[in-house]
Structures are given as structure tokens and as C-alpha cells.
Amino acid sequence: MNALLRGCTVLACLGLGLGLAWSMLELPPAPIQMPGLVASHMDQSGVDHPVTAVLLNFRGYDTLLEVAVLLLALLGMLAAGTTPLHASSFKEAPMLTALARALTPIAVLVAGYLLWAGAFKPGGAFQAAAVLAGAAVLLRIAGLLPSWTTPADGLRLALAAGLLVFLGVAASGLALGGLLAYPPEWAGTLILLIETSLTVSLALILAGLFLAGPDSRPPEEQS
């Protein structure tokens, strides 16, 4: 790319930034105020934390599609092809192994807490799953967890279970008048059901994005 084009790109980005910043300065207050609207519906949402209520109830459909997006990332990776990753590709490291062994139970505990806490304070399935997946990555690096190239039957079921449960709950809402409609008295239980199954599946998907990673070593080292 030549210097002139680079200069123009820099100028365009600069102009866009200045324009955006300027346009925000004198905005009048928004005509629709969502905080009040959300607060007035909290008692029907089944949870006590407004973000969780928006995420899993008011705008639960976004979350449903987003779980599919995450599963798709793994599918795309499998479609492009993976090659087996050897347990020995990471050097023996006694400290790392000990650390992984010590941290994993704590990670499981923290994930459980985050899942439970999501109902009334920041937390929830995604946070819990991220912690679990982090533990899996650590175990993998320490050589304590095997990698896989194509998920076996049971693993595929576990990877997709969260989405399947979510879809099932969403569809049963149709009986009540709308996709994803929960009866207020059942909303808390249903959200917990969705969040729990999502935690397992999302943790496996996130971990899978690392564990199923293609091997970057030259082929002669592969046996």
C-alpha cells in the first residue's frame, strides 16, 4: 500500500473519530428511557439482577442466537480441519502441573458460585463457563487433559446440550403466547435450568476452541 493511501486512511479515521466525538457532545436526552421500563418489569422477570433479566428474559432471544454463534465458531474450526495435538507438545513442568491440580477445584467452585450469583448480582452462565474453560486450558497446558480432533458422540451431545435445552424452553414458551415466553412463577426455575445447561456446554465449547486447535508443528514430528 503506498504512502498516499496510508495517509488518506489515517486522515479518514481521524476525521471519523472527530466527527463521532463532536456529534455526541450536544445530544439531547434520549426520548425512551429503558432503565425505568426494565425496573417496572423486574417482578415478572424471575430474577433480581436487571442485567440477567435483560439477558435471559427481556432480550433472551439475543442470548439464544449468541449461544448458536459460539457453537458455530467451533463448527467452523472443525470444518477447516484440525490435526491431532500431542500431549507431549507441552514440556514437562512440575510447577505448572501442581498449579493446575490445585487451581482446578477452586475454578469449579468459583464457576458454581458465579452461576448461582447471576440471579441477583453480576455473574451468570457465561462468566462461569469462562472460568471452567480457563481451568481446562490450564489442565491442557499441564498435559493433564487430552486434546481431540473430532468430538466423540458423548462430547457432541454435551457441546450442543445447552443450545438444545434453550431451544426446548424457547419453543415451550409458544404455548404461552410467544417464543421464549416464561410464566412469571416459573421464570426463575427455567432461567436456572437454561443457565446451568449453558454453563456446561459453553465451558466445553470455549475449552474446545483451544483443545481442538490444529497442531502447528511440522508433520515429521507427528507420529
Partner: peptide
């Protein structure tokens, strides 16, 4: 809470996209 929830959704989406790009 609405944009906060949207951003959480957006973060997960961009994690997924980043993972696919890295893969």
C-alpha cells in the same frame, strides 16, 4: 441494564469470531 446486556452479548459474539479467526 439494556446496553450492558447487549455488550455482554457482543463480547461473546466477538470472542467466537476471534476464536474462529485464530483457528
Amino acid at each position: 441494564p439494556v446496553p450492558q446486556a447487549m455488550v455482554l452479548t457482543g463480547i461473546v459474539v466477538s470472542v467466537a469470531a476471534t476464536a474462529l479467526a485464530l483457528a
